[in-house]
Nucleic acid binder design. Structure first.
Lengths: 205, 205
DNA sequence: TAGATTGTTAATCGATTAACAATC
DNA sequence: TAGATTGTTAATCGATTAACAATC
């Protein structure tokens, strides 16, 4: 299903490199080596080179990588230059915070609108984004050809929402409800359970 | 540093089991087998047994695990019954959503208060939780002996915030700023970059 | 008892790291 | 040229899965 033959775990690290490279200013020099990236991020330098090799961001022995070229290679590989639209389902506290969050644009992703099953919320707007009634979901997704969704509904509703999104053509779901969602055929899912993450950290102290 | 000798990756799965077991109702039967847990969560059954063995939630051949005992073992192992306090730094959109989020209580974690460097926000309240001025951070953390923090400040400020939290005695940080934070000695960090997660998903379609 | 399920030991698989030849 | 750095092949490490003995 994955278009590219990069291991998922390497793919997940690409945004980390991209963020770091973007955070450097012009006067950090034109070139950057895998060793200095690795040191800054606390990783092994061979790992960095291997990951970067997947993006075909190609370095030069002795000098390293041209920072701007590497950024461009990563952006290109990750599809940052492809305009994509996503929807958000569940306009509760977290949902509204995500609607207002501008960080998706870095990756070429725009949140088109939100859906909520509460009629009292429908019609409202957050950060200029309309909250629509849940029963319009399938129609809007089909009409706009949207493939990405963020789920921020209560745990009890999440799996059902996931199935309807899949029926409406969604191919990737980022889920914030604290349930492990079963993935419908041809749909990729990533579950982020914020509270569980903090609980796990506590156990690592 | 980790108190227990469980692999981190197993530890991260424990909340998944716990959520699933809690979601079952009483009339799903007294016993549950590793096989049925595995099937429900889409994982291997040996993996489930190995993970559960770390919690000493011990099963009986032929019958499986007593669901309530297993839940108790997981809660106990994860420290859900130990009352813990956390603070939130950065009361922006996401920060305020997290302040209002009740999901931490499942793991025995209470968010005590928030801090924000914007004087206009200080003094405000979200879900009954006070937003205090950033310059009170060290004093409050020391006084309350708080070890857990959630960081939801802009990327440019996150590393500095991380260092001050560490100086003030924080041992674990859940970071939502899109930067890989360097971990001060004795501090564990988990970075969650929401936008990057969605971008990665798009590349897995 | 027979059969189902656990817990554990051994085998496999995949990811990371080490070694090193290529090269600018 | 010599030295630094890349890219790749081989070795290591750790996690998952398979096999199976123990047992209720």
């Amino acid at each position: 299903m994955m278009k590219k033959n990069i291991p998922e775990i390497s793919l997940q690290r690409l945004p980390v490199y991209l963020n770091y490279l973007r955070s450097l200013s012009g006067d950090d020099g034109k070139y950057i080596s895998s060793g200095s990236i690795a040191a800054a991020l606390g990783m092994g330098e061979v790992l960095v080179r291997k990951d970067l090799a997947y993006t075909s961001g190609t370095g030069r022995p002795k000098v390293g990588y041209v920072r701007t070229e590497l950024i461009a290679a990563l952006e290109d590989y990750l599809g940052c230059n492809v305009k994509k639209r996503a929807v958000l389902v569940g306009a509760g506290e977290l949902g509204r915070a995500l609607l207002a969050y501008g960080g998706f644009e870095k990756y070429g992703i725009t949140i088109a609108c939100a859906f909520d099953s509460d009629p009292a919320k429908a019609g409202g707007e957050v950060a200029g984004k309309l909250i629509r009634p849940a029963n319009e979901t399938a129609a809007v997704l089909a009409k706009e050809g949207i493939k990405l969704a963020i789920v921020a509904v209560p745990a009890s509703a999440a799996q059902e929402v996931c199935f309807s999104l899949a029926r409406a053509g969604v191919k990737a779901i980022l889920n914030f409800a604290p349930v492990r969602l079963k993935a419908p055929d041809g749909v990729v899912i990533r579950d982020i359970d914020v509270a569980a993450n903090l609980a796990v950290l506590y156990n690592m102290i």
